[in-house]
Design a protein around this nucleic acid. Structure first.
Length: 550
RNA sequence: GGGCGCGUGGCCAAGCCUGGAUAUGGCAACAGCCUCCUAAGCUGUAGAUCAGGGGUCCGAAUCCCCUCGCGCCCGCCA
């Protein structure tokens, strides 16, 4: 089966027969919509003899290629249009025989995607969930590309924040049944107490006992951490995000893995002469401490242990982290690759904060917007929209609209850009949103429901421009899939989905289907079937769940 | 102070890696479109010194340098 990227390659080789060394990027999908594919050859105009006549030859050669409908010269550009009918046959044949387009897969390497990994100190908020949504989409993307993916949540049950959560509970709610609101209340109280007294000795003592492996404290902290973690997992489940594996940070302390890290790194580790604290010096960066003077481990030490574990299980590890961890990513890469000499691929994906118009989101300061709150409002709005249209609402559909909207709102934006959360935007169902995409699907489904036939023989007569345009964009799917996969950018697919559904809407506005005579109707039905299939496939990667009615 | 990220019409994004055709969409605004497969849609109008300045180049939103603004990091915290 020829994919879009194969077409580009065929056209490139044809062009290179006449002009040697034409770069890959000069033969591309044309974003300016002059044609489907364009050759930008202006840069060769002066270095190539007989440029003009060579362009004519290239143009002629391309015109003869299979799949190509037309090739036209416009100055130093050659604009190529594919033959939509042939393309449509390729797509529908794949869906017919393999049930999917594209149907080619890679060798199944094992890939780990670690995401969320937020400290279970309270309900997950709109800032943290950006991590989950990006991470889950990346995991799905890689799985769609043919790899065996495991999603992982690294649960931080050690450290100051978690011990403060525990201390707050013991101090303010001892004996009460630990629930999320009670734990959160204790957490907020203990931090305001720290602030008032400027004394954190109590929690520091706990930390030392914890890090020395005090089993009772570790058990108690883990117990309350589990309660909060469960609520986070529950909130994420409503967004269709689930984890294959949870790894507790404390395990690396109790099993002695952190000691193993020190041993493995011994040739690079230096010791403070005065107090015995141990560190490594990262060139061009700074000293990174791995062991305190009292012999306990630090966050980096435990993260190294965690990555050693992951590298023993997976060929490639991807980690989604907030932008405040950019330097941590550099440190980890240096240690794992340069010092420990692992060959496994390690990728970090960073994302910017989700802020409020009034400033930062913080659980500790009580200024965060819980995911649950946004989700519930989305469900409510979706129901109201349906009631105003049909007088009744499907609960299931409302939930699908809510989870899709929330995910799309955060995944469509380039992760490195900060987001300012606005209710107005988050609750928008118009324009560049998940409901817009979903709506186009319901229109397609509606036609299929009403059309008596499910297709048949078709030909290319009376093809409207919007049909061909839609077909070519459908054909681009594997190309976008590859682009998104190679660069780990789910937002590429989000934008593709928007463009694709806009093309469908255009088609819908311009082309009648069920009341058309047969060859035309069959072709349009075939287009709609392909559209639905590809939209489902791509939506699924982003966690958008389509419905036949909304 | 050093390092990193971000800056695109009133608002929000795409494009930047890999320079090339009149900078692509959405929201809000204005004017229209449902006897017709779902109007959560569509059409049209208006709106941009691509933060600012310099440089490289035949050509810069895109590459380089400087400046400004916002954010983040620079712990024996995580």
């Amino acid at each position: 089966m020829l994919l879009f990227q194969d077409m580009l390659e065929l056209i490139r080789s044809e062009a290179r027969r006449f002009i040697d060394g034409i770069e890959e990027k000069e033969v591309i999908f044309d974003p300016t919509e002059h044609a489907h594919i364009t050759l930008r050859l202006i840069k060769y105009s002066r270095s190539v003899d007989d440029f003009d006549s060579k362009l004519d030859s290239i143009c002629e050669g391309i015109g003869k290629l299979k799949f190509v409908g037309s090739a036209k010269r416009e100055g130093a550009y050659i604009n190529v249009n594919l033959e939509p009918l042939t393309v449509l046959r390729t797509i529908s044949e794949s869906i017919e025989t393999a049930g999917i387009f594209p149907d080619s897969f890679q060798d199944p390497e094992r890939v780990s995607v670690e995401h969320t990994s937020t400290n279970p100190t309270g309900p997950i908020h709109m800032g943290r969930v950006r991590n989950s949504i990006i991470g889950d989409s990346v995991a799905r993307l890689i799985a769609r590309y043919g790899y065996r993916v495991t999603t992982q949540y690294y649960v931080n049950d050690s450290g100051k924040q978690m011990l403060s959560l525990y201390l707050g509970y013991r101090k303010f709610h001892d004996g009460e049944k630990p629930t999320v609101p009670i734990l959160l209340d204790g957490y907020l109280k203990i931090y305001s107490l720290f602030e008032k007294e400027g004394n954190e000795k109590e929690v520091e003592d706990l930390m030392e006992r914890y890090e020395k492996g005090d089993e009772e404290i570790i058990r108690n902290v883990r117990e309350i951490a589990t309660i909060v973690l469960d609520s986070i997992v529950e909130d994420l489940a409503r967004l269709h995000i689930k984890f294959d594996e949870f790894t507790w940070e404390s395990e690396f302390i109790t099993t002695g893995e952190t000691k193993e890290v020190m041993k493995r790194l011994s040739t690079s580790i230096q010791t403070n002469p005065d107090d015995g604290a141990r560190y490594i010096d990262i060139p061009g960066l700074r000293k990174i401490y791995l062991e305190r003077r009292n012999g306990t481990s630090l966050y980096v030490t435990r993260d190294i242990a965690y990555h050693m574990y992951k590298f023993s299980q997976y060929d490639r590890c991807i980690v989604i982290l907030g932008e405040d961890h950019r330097e941590h990513g550099k440190i980890m890469t240096y240690i794992m690759h340069d010092l420990l000499e692992y060959k496994n691929q390690l990728d970090f994906l960073f994302y910017g904060y989700v802020n409020l118009e009034s400033g930062k989101m913080s659980t500790r300061k009580g200024t965060s917007i819980p995911v649950r709150e946004v989700y519930d409002k989305l469900v409510e709005k979706a129901k109201n929209e349906m009631i105003s249209r049909y007088g009744n609402a499907s609960d299931e559909t409302a939930h699908k609209i809510a989870s899709s909207s929330l995910r799309f709102y955060l995944v469509k934006i380039n992760p490195s850009k900060p987001i300012t959360f606005k209710w107005e935007d988050a609750l928008d169902f118009n324009g560049e949103t998940a409901p817009f995409i979903m709506y186009s699907y319901t229109r397609a489904a509606s036609i299929m429901d009403k059309a008596a036939s499910t297709g048949g023989k078709y030909s290319g007569e009376e093809m409207h421009e919007s049909e061909g345009d839609l077909i070519i964009h459908l054909y681009q799917y594997p190309y976008r899939l590859k682009e998104a996969y190679m660069s780990l950018k789910p937002e590429v697919l989000a934008n593709y989905l928007l463009v694709l559904s806009k093309k469908f809407t255009k088609f819908y506005e311009n082309c009648r289907v069920i009341d058309q005579p047969d060859p035309v109707r069959n072709r349009r039905i075939e287009i709609i079937k392909s559209y639905m299939k590809i939209l489902e496939d791509c939506s699924d990667i982003l966690g958008i769940t389509n419905v036949r009615k909304m």
